[in-house]
Amino acid sequence: MTDAVVIVLREVLEAMLLICMLMATSTAMGYRFRWMLGGLALGVGGATLYALGLEQISMAFEGFGQEYVNSALLVGIAVLLATHNFLAVFQLRNPSVMLAYRTLMLTFVVMVAMAITREGAEIYLYAYSYGVLAGNITAVFSGGVIGLGIGLSVGTFFYYGLRSLARRPRLIVCCGVSLVLGASMMGQASVYLSQADVLPYQEPLWDSSGLFEESSLMGELLRATLGYEAQPTLNQVSLYLSSVIVSILAMLAAWRLHRLPEPARGGE
């Protein structure tokens, strides 16, 4: 049962952080949560397709289809998170401008859908194989509900915590969260890419498993929130940092865009 808790919690926590951050952003921008429905529906559909087609996907690209799809999803989310930061900073600079709804919707929907596709597929596979096929339904169900419950509860507090901030600080904090999430996604993507031998193998730069074991509760928590890795490689660290830099540059660009003659174009 603890395995089910850990697996479900890890995935749910990661998705919740993203979704709650986006929810807080959209309240700060004055939008409702209509994008969430589309994102969830697409995500669940995507996760099912991914899980069902996993065999075909795995066989593709010389057996590294999974790694490519996963890293594509992760990089996609990271790019969209940078877009999110761009839009958020633009909104901060031009509080009176209502951002183009469709752009925002599309960004959010696709982000949520991609995240849930990845996280959901893993939960689906685990629940189906260990729960349904192996007959441990009660254990997987209990563990899954516990993991889901804890994840949703943490997300609830996270959301209301963000909600308690005034609009401007809320947007700023959301940008920070998005920055870290994006970097963590890029870090994970680098692992998949080195697993598929796209990125070369490297010696770990350091080993902090003495401080936080990756399999420990704290380690899992840090992994889900900050993309913590006990033994990161140079690739991982540089992709992590490059994501941070891209995100910061996107925000600077949005900040500078303010001086352009037609600021409204930024939202298009």
Partner: peptide, 9 residues
Amino acid sequence: LTLIAIIVL
């Protein structure tokens, strides 16, 4: 939501 979240946690 927050009460349920506390109970759940």
